[in-house]
Write a protein that binds this DNA or RNA. Structure first.
Lengths: 218, 218
DNA sequence: CTTTTTTTGTTAAAAAATTAACATTGTTAG
DNA sequence: CTAACAATGTTAATTTTTTAACAAAAAAAG
C-alpha cells in the first residue's frame, strides 16, 4: 500500500547534511522550473562542488531512494527535503537592522516560495520606522516584545552595527525568539535553548585571501 | 639572540584553524583597543563560543607560546596571526554588484585597518558607474579586465543577482582574479587555480529554522 | 619553604565528516 | 540471451576536527 517510509531520525542528521539538503533543494527547484524530471547524483554533485558519493550518502540518510539508472525524481526529492527541513506551518522571521545588509536580505527573500517568511523588521532610525520595505513593515526596537509575540516570530536575523550587537541579542532573547542568525562581526551570547548561528564576512574574505596567498608562494 | 621561531608550515594549517585565527585577531584587536595587554585561552574561547583547548591547540599549530599563568600577549599574538594570514604587501579586492549587499560590505570594511583593501567595484547601472561609495570607485563591468590588471586586484566578491552569477564569475576569472567569494545563491564554476568560497544566506537561515523546529518537537 | 592552584603545551582519544570500495540491478548493446 | 555498462545504496576506511587527559611550571597561599 503506502510506501513504508522508515521513520528517519532528523535529530541525528549531521549538521553539514542539513546545510547541503537546503542547497540541493535550491538546485532542484531550478531544475524543476526548467522541466527536468529526474537528476543523477553526479549532476547534483557537480552543481554543489562536491562528490556524487556524498550526495548519495546524504539522501540515504534521509531515506530517499532513487531509481537505478534514472536518478532521483526531482519533485519527489524536493518534497521530501521540505518535509525534513521545513516546519509544518512555516516559521516567521524578523530582521533587526534595516541598513544595507538588512535590505539585501529582504530582497533576497521576497518572491521566493518558502516556508520562511520575513514578517517584521526593526530599526532605530525614525525615518524607517512605520514604513514598509518590499512588503516588510519596519517597527521601532521599542516595540519588539509586542510585535514578536503578536506575529509569532521565532527567528531573528541581526544586521545591526557591531556596537549594538550585544544589546540587540539580549532583547531578541527577552522577546522570546528561539533562533538567532548573527551577521554582526561581534559574537553574542544567548541561553542554550536559543539556537545561534554566526557568520562573519570578514573572516570569509580573510580566508580567501589566505588561500590566494598560499597559492602564490606554492 | 633572535627568538627561534620554528618555521610553521602554513600549508598544513586546518581550514577551520584559519577561520578561527581571523576571528581571534578581531577579538584581540578589540582587547588591544581597551588597553588589555594579556588574555587567557579561556577568555578567547568564551568570546568565540568554543573551548579553551581548541584555542590553545590552534595557537600551538602556529607556534605561539604564551606565558604560563599570564596568558597570551595580545599585541604579539595579533602580529603573529597577521604574519600568517596576511599577505606581505596586502591584497586588493573588488566587489562586483553595488546593490545593497555590495554597499553593506564596503561599509563593513571602510575604516577597518586591514591588509585587505577594496579598491574597486563594478556594476551595470549607469547611475552608479563613475561614482564613488565610501571611497570605492565604481566602474562598468566592461572595464573589468583593464581595472583589475591596473589595480592589481586579486580577489573578487560577487554580490550580483543570481541570474548574473555565472557570467560574472567567468569574467572575473578571465580578468585574472585568483580568489572569488560568491554571495550569490547560485554556485559558480572556476578553474582549480582560483580559490572559490561560496556562502548562501538562505542556507544559513534554513539551518537555523531546522534547529529551532527540532528544539520544539524535542 | 612547601603545597595548592592555575594556566599553558602536547599527546592521545573520540567524534564528525568525507571518501573509497563494492555489491546490486536495471538498461543497453551486441 | 548474454555481457558490458552505468547508476544507486551501503558498509568500511580514511581524513579531519574536536575534545579529553595530563605533565610542567609559574604564582599564590599558607
Amino acid at each position: 500500500m503506502e510506501k513504508d517510509d522508515k521513520p528517519i531520525s532528523m535529530k541525528h542528521l549531521p549538521h553539514k547534511t542539513i546545510e547541503r539538503l537546503s542547497q540541493y533543494r535550491r538546485a532542484l527547484l531550478i531544475c524543476l522550473d526548467q522541466g527536468q524530471t529526474h537528476i543523477y547524483s553526479h549532476e547534483i554533485a557537480k552543481i554543489q562542488h562536491i562528490t556524487a558519493v556524498q550526495v548519495r550518502r546524504d539522501l540515504m540518510l534521509i531515506g530517499y531512494t532513487g531509481t537505478l539508472r534514472k536518478g532521483y525524481n526531482v519533485s519527489e526529492l524536493i518534497d521530501l527535503i521540505g518535509s525534513i527541513i521545513d516546519a509544518g506551518e512555516g516559521i516567521r522571521v524578523a530582521i533587526v537592522g534595516m541598513g544595507n545588509l538588512g535590505r539585501a536580505l529582504i530582497n533576497y527573500f521576497s518572491g521566493k516560495r518558502s516556508r520562511l517568511s520575513i514578517s517584521a523588521s526593526f530599526d532605530t532610525n525614525p525615518d524607517k520606522i512605520g514604513r514598509t520595505m518590499s512588503g516588510v513593515p519596519c517597527y521601532s526596537l521599542e516595540d519588539m516584545n509586542e510585535i514578536i509575540a503578536r506575529e509569532n516570530i521565532k527567528i531573528g536575523i541581526m544586521t545591526v552595527p557591531a556596537a549594538a550587537a550585544l544589546t540587540v541579542a539580549e532583547k531578541l532573547v527577552q522577546a522570546g525568539i528561539k533562533g538567532i542568525l548573527n551577521y554582526t562581526p561581534k559574537p553574542v551570547y544567548v541561553p542554550k535553548d536559543v539556537y545561534l548561528e554566526e557568520y562573519d564576512m570578514i573572516t570569509s574574505l580573510e580566508k580567501v585571501a589566505f588561500y590566494v596567498k598560499m597559492q602564490e608562494v606554492d
